[in-house]
Design a binder for these strands. Structure first.
Length: 460
RNA sequence: GCGCCAUUGGUGAAGUGGUUAACACGCUAGUUUGUGGCACUAGUAUGCAAGAGUUCGAUUCUCUUAUGACGCCCCA
């Protein structure tokens, strides 16, 4: 049997509905902030990632899917979204677009050759946004607030925003030097991993889990202390705008991004969810003012954010967040003989065009089994087609919840369904997640006798 | 790249070096001549991830590989 590739997933069934909903909320929220959808290729020239993300990062040195195509071109499946967007920005000369800054968002699969574990796959889906052409601290704050608002719109309650500033190139280099000098004399006291990080990526020592309680780490120099005046002022301004936008955040000097291109503002957003495992960062981002220039474009200040949809869906499931998913069908058409089947085929088509979700029988089940099938599909209504009824221009239609059956004129069917289904839509389409009635909170989808929830909808 | 645990039918799973691989759910059909969901009856893995080895004999022991879960590294 051919299996799916390691670390890849088939998203289907209920989970697929959740994904589609999450993506719909992302689209809607992005549109409100006036970010335009951009879709770039899944693969790019290998060089783009080497020059863009940085030769020294693990993502590029050992986690990309590289191959040569039949024409001998060196190709890499994208491990993240920013490089492709920036390539497009430069190639299509979007810096010439009069409506600066360029605000775009994407949503797509990324590929990293990693060992899978909780919250980490080889094929992952990320959405993200980029603002290209603005150095205004308001852009930084807006990107962070947009990310936070997407999570909030989806119904996540406990999210934590950690921000930090790496400063400009000068500040960043000074800080790196200071860290190395600080740790070098006593590096032997830290764990093996930290020792190897000293030269390679001293900032990551601050993140170490093994030594997090070590006195040496607690008193280590902080990025903030190495910011020059300009960088410090900029960071203060970002924080002020965050306050204005109502974003709760925490300055965390240990936030260090993995990619080389970041400077100034960097941030991570964590989900505080019970049982989420060790990979609890939903997304992160930061400012990358040097990247466009590094890729042969004009110097352009930019900021962006990216977030994994898989982790997001997992967080929503663990939090049992309620979502307005359509899990029911409106009508299931049942039949026994050939003539009835033909009529079912015709009628299902008519009703679908009239806007109803209709399904019927395709595998020759008996009537009894068709009832079961209707239940499995959560049919709200069932119609058993009967030749005699049809000859009389009638149809029997049964409410599958109340089990009441009525015989109505075929001509009245669409009107009948419209009336019945739209009347109950108020109940079914309620999207509120804070239910306060005394049924225990499940009134949107379960039967309950109670009146209303915080959304103001009435439920019976 | 490293570590640890796992892999039995559509699903959840029990199990043992040796006759027909338990049980439950599900599914299909019948009892019920076209209106089910209850009940009863019958059917539902020539198979225990793949390959190799040990053995008279392996699903059960050993090794290799694959995949999954979790953790480390790294990172979203």
């Amino acid at each position: 049997m051919i299996q799916k590739q390691k670390g890849c997933n088939d998203i289907k069934g209920y989970e697929a509905k959740v994904w589609k909903y999450v993506e719909a909320v992302i689209d809607a929220t992005m549109e409100k902030y006036n970010y335009n959808y951009i879709r770039t290729p899944l693969f790019e020239a290998t060089e783009l990632f080497h020059r863009g993300i940085g030769e020294s990062t693990d993502i590029v040195t050992k986690e990309t899917y590289d191959f040569e195509d039949r024409g001998g071109r060196k190709i890499t499946l994208r491990p993240e979204g920013t490089a492709g967007v920036v390539r497009s920005y430069i190639e299509d000369k979007m810096y010439g677009d009069p409506t600066q800054p360029v605000k775009v968002y994407y949503n797509g699969t990324m590929y990293r050759y990693e060992r899978p574990q909780s919250g980490r796959d080889r094929e992952l889906t990320q959405f993200g946004m980029e603002v290209l052409g603005s150095d205004d601290p308001l852009s930084d704050a807006e990107v962070i607030s947009l990310a936070v608002n997407i999570y909030k719109m989806l119904g996540l309650k406990e999210i934590k925003v950690n921000i930090n500033s790496l400063g400009d190139a000068e500040s960043r280099n000074n800080y790196r030097e200071a860290l190395i000098n600080y740790f070098k004399p006593r590096i032997g006291e830290l764990c093996e991993d930290c020792q190897s990080r000293l030269e390679k990526n001293p900032l990551r020592i601050l993140d170490c889990k093994v030594d997090s309680e070590h006195e040496l780490l607690k008193n280590a120099p902080k990025t903030i202390d190495y910011l020059n005046d300009e960088s410090k002022e900029r960071f203060d301004s970002v924080k002020e705008y965050l306050d204005i936008l109502g974003v709760n955040y925490e300055v965390n000097p240990n936030i260090v991004r993995g990619l080389d291109y970041y400077n100034h503002t960097v941030f991570e957003i964590e989900a505080k969810v019970e049982g989420f495992g060790s990979n609890n960062v939903l997304g992160g981002g930061g400012r990358y003012n040097g990247l466009v220039g590094q890729l042969d474009g004009p110097d352009t200040p930019c900021i962006g954010f990216a977030s994994g949809i898989g982790r997001l869906v997992k967080a929503l499931e663990l939090e049992k967040v309620k979502m307005p998913l359509v899990l029911d069908i409106d009508l299931f058409l049942m039949y026994v003989n050939e003539d009835e089947k033909k009529y079912a085929a015709y009628l299902s088509q008519e009703l679908r065009m009239a806007g109803f979700i209709v399904d019927t029988e395709y595998v020759g089940r008996g009537l009894k089994a068709q009832f079961k099938q209707a239940d499995r599909l959560n049919a709200k209504y069932i119609a058993v087609l009967n030749s005699e009824d049809l000859n009389n221009n009638e149809i029997k239609i049964k409410n599958n919840r109340t089990k009441e059956e009525e015989t109505i004129s075929l001509d009245a069917l669409i009107y009948y369904l419209d009336e019945k289904l739209n009347a109950s839509d108020e109940y079914d389409d309620c999207t509120c997640s804070d239910l306060e009635c005394n049924c225990g909170g499940d009134c949107c989808h379960d039967e309950c006798e109670h009146e209303h929830c915080s959304c103001g909808h009435h439920h019976e």
